[in-house]
Design a protein around this nucleic acid. Sequence first.
DNA 1: TGCAATGCATA
DNA 2: GTATGCATTGCAA
Length: 947
Amino acid sequence: MSDQKRLFLVDAYALIFRGYYAFIKNPRINSKGTDTSAIMGFMNSLLDVIKRERPDHLAVCFDKGGSTDRVEMYQEYKANRDETPEAIKIAVPYIYDILKAMHIPIMVKEGYEADDVIGTLSKQAEKEGYKTFMVTPDKDFAQLVSENIFMYRPVFGGGYETWGIPEVQKKFEVTDPLQVIDFLGMMGDSSDNIPGLPGVGEKTAKKFLAQYGSMENLLANTHELKGKMKEKIEANGELGILSKKLATIMLDVPVEFNEKDFEMSQPDIPKVTEIFQELEFRRLIDNFNKTFATDSETPQTNTTPSTTKATLKEQTSAGAGQFSLFGGDPSGATNTEPTSEYSRKTAETTSHFYQSIDSGIATKLFIKNLMNQTSVCFDTETTGLNPITAELVGIAFSWEVGKGFYLPFPEEKTEAQELIEQLRPFFESEAIQKIGQNLKYDIKVLAKYNIEVKGKLFDTMLAHYLINPDMRHNMDVLAETYLNYTPISIETLVGKKGKNQLSMREVPLEKQTEYAVEDSDITLQLKEHFEKELGEANTQKLFDDIEVPLLRVLAAMELEGINLDKKFLETLSGELNKDIASLETKIYETAGETFNIASPKQLGIILFEKLKLVDKPKKTKTGQYATSEDILSYLAKDHDIIQNILDYRGLTKLKSTYVDALPDQVEESTGHVHTDYMQTVAATGRLSSNNPNLQNIPIRTERGRQVRKAFIPRNEDYTLLAADYSQIELRIIAALSEEETMISAFKNGEDIHASTASKVFNVHLNEVTREQRSNAKTINFGIIYGVSAFGLSNQTNLSRSESKELIDTYYATYPKLRNFVSDQVAFARDHGYVQTVLGRRRYLKDINSRNAVVRGAAERNAVNAPIQGSAADIIKIAMINIHQKLNEGNFKTKMLLQVHDELVFDVYKPELESIKNLVKTEMEGAYKLEVPLDVDLDIGDNWLEAH
DNA sequence: TGCAATGCATA
DNA sequence: GTATGCATTGCAA
């Protein structure tokens, strides 16, 4: 860091509003009934900045009386603003008082906005050799950014980002920050009521800037524009110039930057504390003291006067001393009030004994005790949700209901590693069962500390997924449903997400302990509950043999991630951009005006009201014009604009969802993208993938499938192998229905759709037309989804009655398939559920509904769930076996992705032949059916080639 | 900022 | 007709 002097200028109202809205869901009201949200929000931000940056010069700037100059230029300026909320009006005098007590200068000038004051001061400071940081979330300030002037923006999720020239250039797609003014002038600003150029939004403004560079140059060259856009802009040139003026921050406010006045000094602590006490800001007092602790005293001793320590002591001494604690009974319960039968229990109303372990000696004793257990529940607390970057903050353990221990982790890396090393024997013990909720997460976190979790596992989330797949499985829901207990919410610890959310590390130890041990205690209790329920049917086997082993496999795949060719995607993005722009121009030309093509609402109006492409346009259920793909493609052949719109949609979707989004998901430390497989969301037993979803990477269209080229092996010694089951769902339905005709077609290795076509259309296998095959394919899939004549005619060129006829012929050809379908429905009616080959159940509560639509849906589920679910079961078995074989054989090859019926491997080239053999054998042999399973293998230097 | 509606990518 | 996840728009607090 340079030793240049640094000035921080805070945009008070912007932060006050931000703070106020952050608390809008549950405003902070103190015992006197005052809404303190705005004050709290502002102070949090201010202290945060001071703590992070330790500025040597700082001032807070306010508006006063609005901008007289701007109102003079434009009567309507900020005229549409709502009345300032009451809480904010109340806040301002308090904030003034606090700032005074903190000896922080307040800058205001009657008739000027804070923007102008900040702008003027930063330019003055720049001359004095300062680096200035404008603390504000407001994008308008970007115009002031220079080599020495930065924006310091609070960001979503906590933390700040600094915008210098490069950031502004990137964000606004400009070459000079001053062009931000043109940008704002063109697109306008609804909150300030700056009109902007009509028909120009963010996208068009950026386009114009790239082309013309400024408002003035645009207006001078309107002859180059076309159609409606040309007219509109030519007619509104003055409005554009005015908008630009309104958006310009003034740099000549009569204020003076006086170095001395802006110097930070020690605040009047008693005075500030007094105000905070009046407002009942308890945590803020702590935070404040911590921030301004003098160097001679450590923050801890100075600031946490006695509350934290005392409470801990209380807990420690509640039992009969260190030794008896680990073996003793929970007599030291903090609270034993009886619980009302009707209200939910909480930590406060339930007897419990949660203790943090605060010394090296205690840790040793604790671990000794831990190693004597046979079954332990644990829960890691970390600094974030991403296990690859998260650091351990603490681990909670429990093995007796109502009781547990919390081991906090030091922030310092080598110290943390030393502590976890002491726990290695526990985690790596084969003899001790580990219980947890969503163990995949904990396992991944620990893997980053080079700890492997061994021994039998019990994951309560997975257990509940098998017991009741249609419910959600987060711990709070489970605790409320099965234990009638409401856990401490994470939000009460770290605050609402966004703005000032704390990291777990910043939560006081006593709270961490209560929260973390409670989680592990509840998990333990849930385990005892679910253990019994799992006993039923095949659920226990499914749990022990499939889901739990799979959890380790998924953890490994996720940690591995897949290599992504960022460069390639950048190039692709550029190409898409060009094509999108040219489509845009064509569409606007036809429409005669510019509009937002991505907005179904605007598009509907253009197509059906302005261009009147159809006599009676269809409407959606919300009363809008329907502009969905199927409706538009129907019109495409008659109107060029429709085809262009469809292409436009396709390309923008491709760009925003994949080409531009994927590179941002690359994990810095590994260079790979790491998806998160959800093991407990799909009711049928499938996995799902998110952050990013790697199970829906395009493949159908030529343009889309290019994205697959970006998925590449880790280096040149590796190659990608894709292995996918051929027609697995049809094979399953053939086997389950025992339909011999279909089974023998598979046994003979026939093209199943052609085979079906030849039978239902009664032609020779060689004479099946493309259309016949395609219709047969549709109906084959239709069976899997639970056909109806209606659905079939929608999907094909067949009429409703032709469809019905086809279905009848189909069932006549495959009579046992019809039986299978009705048997599934009948089974569901009798039992209330259907099941897969492994006994995975799906409960169908609507199967006997009197509402035909609802019942129909349940019936289709009754057919589909066993098929989709059995396929899911089978690939899961294959994954577990392959993972095991790869480990046993010490292969360098890694399994990376699963896409429902496909597995993708990063194959070490010398291992290729044995891997191909291994994968094919394990996948085809995963489960024995009356129909052979068939797996296609492909290799390539990227995921597209491997197909 | 949070949410519903819409549309679209995969198996 | 089955099963998912996610980007965008537009509106509401």
